[in-house]
Design a binder for these strands. Structure first.
Length: 614
RNA sequence: GGCCCCAUAGCUCAGCUGGAUAGAGCAACUGACUUCUAAUCAGUAGGCCUCAGGUUCGAAUCCUGAUGGGGUCACCA
């Protein structure tokens, strides 16, 4: 049994014996003792004064004496104000260390046979991935890893938004200005190439729009449709979408292209397939670099018509209703949400319908009891509505739906806006952090004896660790500010700092060779720092379970940092290979092995690799 | 305007279901490498936890309200 649980049980027993009261475990708060005090776990006595009319200190004293006398794990105790600090027998910690130091899977929970789906990334195919996708992918990947470690079978999926007006814009621009350029001929990565034509489209469109604004036709529209007192610039800014749909010549061509696509026109489909292939090849490269992968990809081109049968069923069950114009709606006002459209009056699906259909399809494919959507918080409302609809439709998976909503990434210069060209490209960013790690590494010269290829590998791991840790240490829900300088920091609360603790272990252990560890049995009196490390390792399995339950990878990042920090201090204050005795040496080697395993494992949960040297 | 989210050191962030004197890192200053990797360690300095009420033995944490910031309220996705 867990030590905390057994201490709580023992305290409940004690309260019964001493005062004849029956405590519920929820009334007994058992915390890890704060650094300033002596002890391992602390029982907060105050709540007990409700049941027993004694002052907290006397209560603590009596309970402490009881626990010391009757609980084998409790070696000693002290009472400070209303806090009963318990000291756990060193032997307990030593036994625990012995049980884990050779187990690389320590912390992983047994398979529970339950299935979870994680959807993440889900890009559009008209432009390359950017910093926002990176946060998304890191969260998604960590969620996969954490759930996997927590015992679940995890299916990683994404929905590729491969159709619609956006990709048609790229297609149109390529057709008109591309002159047959390919990724091969231009030496440009496929997703970037397609993105370039998306930008080119915008440029031509803006040019056309500007000309129109200055023309008499534009001026007439301005005069007719402007709001009271609206100046020309403001008017035309807000008029852009309408212009695109109703006035623009190239807008009309793009829309015609979309219609041809929907009609399965062979030439259009073939161009679409070709450009999407380029994009996918580019995306694959980026996924590889970031170390993420998927089990199944869903494509919007296959799902955008889905959900109509669900709409029918919803109508039959009176969850939905039909308006006179034929459109189908749901009224969620009683749930403090609005009325929401399900089918257009022409009977076609909207975003919501597609998501209903896609969820259904996925359930048919994998029958996961939980589906986690890693999507930015701008879509909070959408998912609230989606999940509410699922509940009303009584889908079997409705209760297991979760929106892992994360805050947008801001730059120090403000928001990222693709229209204003202030997006941070994913490939560029990865290249930069690796370059920075490389510079750093060469200054130190610690990799001199490695081959160039090995050095590159180490440097890649370090750079990515800096970037990934920087992003993932922030709680998902919080909006974060991305400072490019800080993202490549390698000192302090960073990925490389944690890696460094791992490397120190590895380096020392490889120097140790294959030592005889049996003298460790003679090591019975733990130093505080040693005990703190073991106690921290002890928390790891529970941490994994918690992080899964809370959908919060940042918990793992905090933990790995704290563990690394404690190890670094231990390393500074104590000798391992030249310890004061054979017993201490053997014990500390075991301790380092355990710490090393958990550092590696916790980094792995974050998608960060641990190098052996750095 | 309705609904939702956020607010902690100069900056970036932790702070578990309420518990002891609110913690890290960065930046600044001071020390520690002939040593198992100094990408490290130790120290100094830095706070009306946005504000005002409430619940409680006890509040950064829970409740209400206000202020500031963000999101969202499409027959777009």
């Amino acid at each position: 049994m867990n030590i905390v649980d057994s201490l709580v049980q023992a305290a409940i027993q004690g309260a019964k014996q001493l005062y004849d009261i029956k405590l519920d475990p929820s009334e007994v708060t058992m915390n890890v003792t704060r650094k300033e005090f002596v002890g391992d776990y602390t029982l907060v006595v105050f709540p007990l004064t409700k049941h027993v009319k004694k002052n907290p200190e006397a209560l603590g004293q009596e309970l402490g004496e009881y626990l010391k006398a009757n609980t084998p794990e409790v070696k000693d105790f002290n009472v400070v104000k209303g806090f009963l600090n318990l000291v756990v027998e060193d032997q307990y910690w030593l036994d625990f260390l012995n049980s884990i130091y050779q187990n690389p899977d320590f912390g992983r929970q047994p398979r529970n046979g339950r299935k979870v789906m994680v959807e993440f990334c889900s890009p559009n195919t008209n432009k390359p991935l950017h910093l926002g996708h990176i946060r998304n992918m890191l969260l998604g990947w960590a969620t996969y890893k954490i759930y996997d470690a927590a015992g679940f079978d995890v299916v990683r999926v994404q929905i590729i938004n491969d159709r619609g007006v956006a990709i048609c814009k790229s297609m149109w621009a390529w057709q008109n200005y591309g002159q047959g350029t390919t990724p091969e001929s231009s030496k440009i990565k496929g997703d970037h190439l397609v993105g370039d034509y998306y930008v080119a489209f915008e440029r031509h469109f803006q040019e056309e729009y500007k000309n129109w604004q200055d023309s008499s036709a534009g001026q007439v529209v301005f005069a007719e449709k402007k709001k009271e007192g609206q100046d020309e610039a403001t008017f035309f800014k807000s008029f852009k979408d309408l212009y695109f749909n109703e006035y623009s010549k190239i807008g009309a061509e793009v829309r015609a292209m979309l219609l041809r696509w929907e009609a399965n026109d062979p030439a259009t489909i073939s161009l679409w397939k070709q450009m999407n292939r380029w994009v996918y090849a580019g995306f694959e490269e980026t996924y590889d670099k970031l170390g993420v992968a998927f089990d199944k990809l869903y494509y919007e081109s296959n799902t955008y018509l889905l959900g109509k049968d669900i709409a029918e069923q919803g109508l039959a069950d009176s969850v939905f209703y039909k308006q006179e114009d034929g459109s189908v709606w749901i009224d969620l006002e009683d749930a403090k949400l609005d009325k929401k459209i399900i089918l257009r009056r022409d009977g076609t699906s909207v975003y919501m319908t597609q998501d209903l259909g896609t969820a259904e399809l996925r359930y048919q494919d994998f029958a996961c009891e939980k589906m986690i959507y890693v999507v930015a918080d701008e879509q909070n409302y959408h998912f609230q509505v989606l999940f509410e609809i699922m509940k009303r439709l009584k889908r079997p998976y409705a209760e297991g739906l979760f929106h892992l909503s994360y805050g947008m990434v801001d730059l120090t210069t403000g928001k990222m806006k693709s229209r204003e060209g202030t997006v941070v490209d994913a490939d560029d960013l990865v290249a930069e952090v690796i370059e920075e790690a490389s510079k750093n590494s060469h200054e130190r010269g610690t990799l001199a004896e490695l081959t160039a290829a090995e050095q590159a590998e180490v440097v890649r791991k370090i750079g990515l660790a800096a970037l990934k840790f920087f992003i993932i240490k922030v709680h998902p829900k919080k909006r974060m500010t991305f400072n490019p300088e800080e993202s490549v920091d390698m000192q302090g609360q960073t990925g490389p700092y944690v890696q460094n603790a791992y490397v120190r272990c590895s380096s020392m252990l490889s120097k140790a060779g294959n030592p005889d560890l049996s003298p460790a049995a003679q090591y019975t009196a733990l130093e505080t720092q040693e005990k703190d490390l073991i106690s921290q390792l002890y928390q790891y399995p529970e941490l994994i379970v918690q992080a899964a339950k809370e959908h919060d990878p940042s918990m793992i990042a905090s933990y790995s940092y704290e563990l690394a920090k404690n190890f670094h201090r231990f390393w500074h204050d104590f000798r391992i290979l030249q310890a004061e005795s054979e017993a201490a040496k053997a014990f500390r080697i075991k301790l380092s092995m355990a710490v090393r395993q958990v550092l590696r494992s916790s980094l792995d949960l974050l998608g960060i690799e641990a190098p052996e040297k750095m």
